[in-house]
């Protein structure tokens, strides 16, 4: 028995020596099978310090923007997006664009997606006129009477049913 055990020990010792010699990554290797860190000595990475504003502009281009900038005025945009019209101050009600320059109309799903509510947010001014116009428009799309709730204080309208794209299209055509 003792002979076998000494032989085994030898084999294990040799195997561990082979492991140490082998520097390539071992398949199914883990934390314990990985090698220790070695001191690589002095590593010389060459760099240059510059305070040139032209160079800094290149860095600024890579940095993510903190806000979405004001879009450049064009007649038509490839995505179909449209900026708000310019005559907003003279209108009776106003729907503010979001920080991403989108129309704030959202779908609210609840009760395992059975309840579908469309919400028009950020309404300022005469919200009751908007309610009247929206119901007139939606009545053309639906056979049932339109049920909606107006919250003048918080500035939103909640409509029963999924009319998000229809309302977004309608508001876009009106210039909002």
């Amino acid at each position: 028995m003792s002979v076998i055990s000494t032989k085994l020990r030898l084999v294990i010792n040799n195997l561990s020596k082979i492991n140490l010699r082998a520097k390539q990554i071992i398949r199914h290797g883990g934390y314990y099978s990985s090698e220790y860190l070695e001191d690589l000595g002095k590593v010389s990475t060459k760099f240059e310090v510059t305070k040139d504003p032209v160079d800094w502009k290149c860095v600024e281009n890579i940095l993510p923007r903190k806000t979405i900038p004001e879009p450049v005025k064009k007649d038509e945009y490839p995505s179909g997006w449209q900026p708000q019209a310019d005559d907003m101050q003279s209108r009776p009600y106003y729907i503010e664009r979001t920080r991403n320059h989108l129309i704030p109309v959202y779908l609210d799903l609840a009760q395992h997606n059975i309840r579908r509510h469309t919400i028009i947010r950020r309404v300022k001014g005469d919200i009751w006129l908007l309610e009247k116009e929206v119901t007139e428009f939606l009545q053309t799309l639906s056979n049932k009477p339109i049920r909606l709730q107006v919250n003048e204080f918080a500035g939103f309208i909640r409509i029963n049913g999924d009319f998000v794209n229809a309302i977004k299209y309608w508001l876009k055509n009106k210039g909002y």
Binding site: P64, R65, K66, T67, I68, R99, N100
Partner: peptide, 8 residues
């Protein structure tokens, strides 16, 4: 205003 308009 910065917090109301920031992107991140």
């Amino acid at each position: 205003l910065e917090n109301l308009n920031r992107n991140d």
